[in-house]
Amino acid sequence: MPLSEHEQRLFDQIERSLAEDPKFASAVRANDPRFHARRRLVVAAFVIVLGLALVVYGTVTRITPLGVAGFVVMLGAAAFAMQSRRKGQATDLHAVGGTATRRTRQPRGKSGGLLDRLEERWKNRPEGHR
Rank of each mutant, 00 (worst) to 15 (best):
T59L: 14
T59D: 11
V60F: 13
V60L: 15
T61N: 11
R62E: 15
R62H: 15
I63C: 05
I63W: 09
T64K: 01
T64E: 03
L66C: 03
G67E: 05
V68H: 04
A69H: 05
A69V: 06
A69Y: 07
A69R: 03
F71L: 08
F71C: 01
V72D: 08
V72F: 14
V73L: 15
V73S: 12
V73Q: 10
L75H: 05
L75D: 03
A77K: 00
A77D: 01
A78D: 05
A79V: 09
F80I: 08
F80Q: 11
F80A: 14
F80C: 09
M82T: 06
M82V: 06
Q83I: 07
Q83F: 07
Q83P: 02
S84G: 15
S84I: 05
S84V: 03
R85W: 12
R86Q: 10
K87M: 13
K87G: 14
G88P: 02
G88M: 13
G88L: 12
G88V: 12
Q89W: 13
Q89N: 15
Q89Y: 10
Q89I: 10
T91F: 04
T91S: 04
T91P: 04
T91I: 02
D92Q: 07
D92Y: 01
D92A: 02
L93A: 03
L93C: 00
L93Q: 00
A95K: 00
A95G: 00
V96R: 12
V96G: 11
V96C: 10
G97C: 09
G98V: 06
T99V: 11
T99L: 09
T99D: 05
T101F: 06
R102D: 05
R102F: 13
R102P: 03
R102T: 09
R102Y: 11
R103L: 11
R103T: 03
T104M: 10
R105Y: 10
R105D: 12
P107W: 08
R108H: 08
R108Y: 04
G109S: 14
K110N: 08
G113D: 14
L114Q: 00
L114K: 06
D116V: 14
D116G: 15
R117V: 12
R117T: 13
